[in-house]
Amino acid sequence: MNYSEKVMDHFINPRNVGEIENADGVGEVGNAKCGDIMKMYLKIEDETITDCKFKTFGCGAAVATSSMATEMIKGKSIDDALKLTNSAVMEALDGLPPVKVHCSVLAEQAVKAALTDYYQKQGIDPEPIVGKVPEMEEE
């Protein structure tokens, strides 16, 4: 597996690992059967993501894309976070091997899932804002 130096850096030294107590939004995507689970925690104040942490079960690319995604949305507005795409995450990591592209998709979905949870907690229908996030597959 030919990973870029940036991927290896974010894998060996992942940024923002952990949990946020009383997080304003928590999203979990992927499933153990396929070998990837990402859980994203957001702290949101005045429409801004003031803190972001993650936990990931998965391969090197899964850890690196989660780490990079948290870096890319931390301190940003919700609007900006919603614009985060998997290709932007991949680009920021200097690319991913083709078989690992789905990891970046998972990272984008983890952010969206956490924002969906945030809006649900606010009593706001998230779908018009966030769009549909694929449900976690149950076995």
């Binding site: 597996m1 060996i12 396929c34 391969c59 899964a62 078989v99």
Partner: peptide, 30 residues
């Protein structure tokens, strides 16, 4: 249990140990 094979291999490699896994992620299939 609780961890995925490829990340285990990458960490072992970081510590100088070259090994292998039967995880999906090392084969490129699901």
């Amino acid at each position: 249990v609780g961890i995925e094979g490829e990340s285990l291999l990458l960490m072992l490699d970081h510590f100088g140990v070259m090994a292998s896994s039967g995880s999906a992620c090392t084969s490129g299939s699901l």
